[in-house]
Nucleic acid binder design. Structure first.
Lengths: 348, 348
DNA sequence: CTGAAAGCGCTTACAG
DNA sequence: CTGAAAGCGCTTACAG
């Protein structure tokens, strides 16, 4: 069963290949009658133009790469896997397909090479990255080769890079959380930071600090810790923080994100601290599991669907050379009060 | 910055394009010295052959499509998203990339058309499907066009279809669950079936029945129900089953899978039934959440990584025309006893 | 062992 | 409005 080509269609419709091509690409200079005739043959013979041939003669492949960076993929939770879906859906909406790769670690040059190869072989029109450090050399390398790169959570103040698009979290969420805890009466607040090579973790840290300073709250060393971005690293950090503070426990703990907050839950359970009676806990990102956790987790909600749709759309706008594409988008969020927070107990 | 082509490499290395091609494709009839010389230029100029040109001249694109069928994607849980990862990883292992699509519903011909298009445009060498009914016409259509299709949970007894590969669950898990409950002393067992258009649900149903018959256990109508394959549909089914059986409650409920079992949890909670004191519950598939559910869920574990690696490998073997590829693989599982099951209470 | 040439299936100026 | 021709960047018989 020989595959049918544009040549065959041309012959069957009594036109030239040029005209078949014009019909396929929806060019306007084809009279309706010719258009219909060609279209009929195309349908009848189930003809599909080969992407490789189209790509070779200069058309876009309508494919974007999705590069999922970092081992955290191993703990693929409902929230992060939703990112995936949002990108694929948003791309599909524009007629683009998504080529997915999981990249363990970009400090390994073999992995960098994998990404490079996918770009350079002409498989994709652009790439979208999740899980990058905010100073990833590969990004600059790609930009220098005139490639288009979309990044979740990445921003360099004041730089103009039309081929670098990013979607980010708003920058004031930490402050909003502190405001809220303060309004409940909390004065002794601990903070567990994330991985400060990531933009959002830096912003959260800054924003928490801003809130603490605004209310002149004490920043005790033993109430500050680094807990990474997942439960597994959040737990030991929280455990140590609490153990170091047994003489003077904080009344609330702010975690870099929900994963870390779940680690705080586990550490509190281990020490017999009840949430929120003995200590309040706040996460960030509103992972679905937080709703059914016990107690349900107070957190900060972001519309990730919107965030990834914006990123994907702007990447595609850039591929299609639309003018005035917004380089960096900051998505607002909002505090989501559930049951892991309460006023602190009156001191004995 | 003009992209470099094999022509340029040929010129720079003082050979013909044919030889460059031979080097790239690792053909043996190139003397080591020539090979090195060409390779050196390739590295030096960061040359990457264009896939579209290679594809057009007959090479494989080294890409497989992953078609995620069904709305259940909306509730992308950790287990099902791990399928994704397993396929991408297994493909990467063999040097293949994965083009991902979410397809809402194959009864909608527009969606069928999307799949067809991806295959026919020459984007992929083969496709892997998750979420198909066991009698999906598209599969046969694709096979007739000589396409390669890999399917999770799909099997037609006695058919020889070298281009249709599948990975499936073992067929006796239901019986093993009944044996276990019987050994605990249960005699009044309810069963919540899944979606009987899916192979695994049929097998589970059959296998549960086999176990029930083997032990001559009563199959009361009010102890049987259909609960779909997710929590949202499992809950109402379980609720109704229990409400219909208030005069004679079962002492154990077997769910088609863990999602449905979580629905049973919710229904039991609503009726004040304690698990396992008042009623035992068994799921299947060992979703990660089952471990931390309260109580931790007794279930049936399958090695999904192995299941999807096997599927992906056999699909690639078929692309590469390896001989004697196993068409259908049945992956064994094992009972995972946790705390949602206990002996039934002695009747008053 | 290696090169010249044909061919893969499209698109796109260029002419008319 | 439309066709003939060139070109995209590879691979692969075919000769030698």
């Amino acid at each position: 069963m020989k595959r049918i080509s544009s040549n065959d269609i041309a012959r069957l419709a009594g036109v030239s290949r040029s005209t078949v091509s014009r019909v396929i690409n929806g060019y306007t200079n084809v009279p309706p009658e010719t258009y219909e005739r060609v279209m009929k043959v195309i349908k009848e013979y189930h003809y599909y133009p080969q992407v490789s041939a189209r790509a070779l003669s200069g058309k876009s492949t309508n494919t974007i790469g999705l590069f999922w960076v970092g081992r955290s993929r191993l703990a693929m939770d409902p929230l992060t896997s939703s990112y995936f879906m949002h990108v694929v859906d948003a791309a599909a909406e524009r007629g683009y397909l998504v080529l997915a790769s999981f990249i363990d670690d970009l400090t390994d040059s073999a992995n960098v090479q994998k990404v490079r190869k996918i770009y350079m072989e002409g498989r994709i029109d652009a790439g979208i990255f999740v899980g990058l450090s905010n100073t990833e050399p590969l990004v600059d390398e790609l930009l220098e080769m005139d490639k288009i790169v979309g990044i979740f959570d990445y921003f360099h103040e004041g730089e103009d890079q039309p081929h670098r698009l990013s979607s980010n979290f708003e920058r004031d969420s930490g402050e909003a959380v502190i405001d809220y805890l303060y309004s409940l009466g909390h004065r002794k607040i601990a903070i567990i930071d994330g991985d400060l090579s990531r933009l959002s973790c830096i912003h959260r840290h800054e924003s928490y600090m801003r809130g603490m300073l605004k209310h002149s709250l004490p920043l005790k060393n033993q109430w500050l810790a680094y807990g990474g971005i997942v439960e597994e690293t959040g737990y030991p950090a929280a455990k140590q923080l609490l153990e170091n503070s047994l003489d003077d426990l904080p009344t609330a703990i702010c975690a870099n994100n929900d994963g870390v907050a779940f680690g705080v839950y586990r550490a509190c359970a281990g020490l017999g601290l009840r949430i929120p009676q003995d200590i309040s806990v706040v996460g960030m990102d509103a992972r679905p599991e937080g709703k059914t956790a016990s107690p349900p987790l107070t957190t900060y909600y972001y519309d990730f669907q919107r965030l990834f749709a914006s990123l994907t759309d702007r990447v595609i706008d850039t591929i299609e050379e639309k003018p005035d594409v917004l380089q960096a988008d900051f998505i607002p969020g909002q505090l989501l009060v559930r049951e892991s927070t309460a006023p602190p107990r009156a001191e004995a």
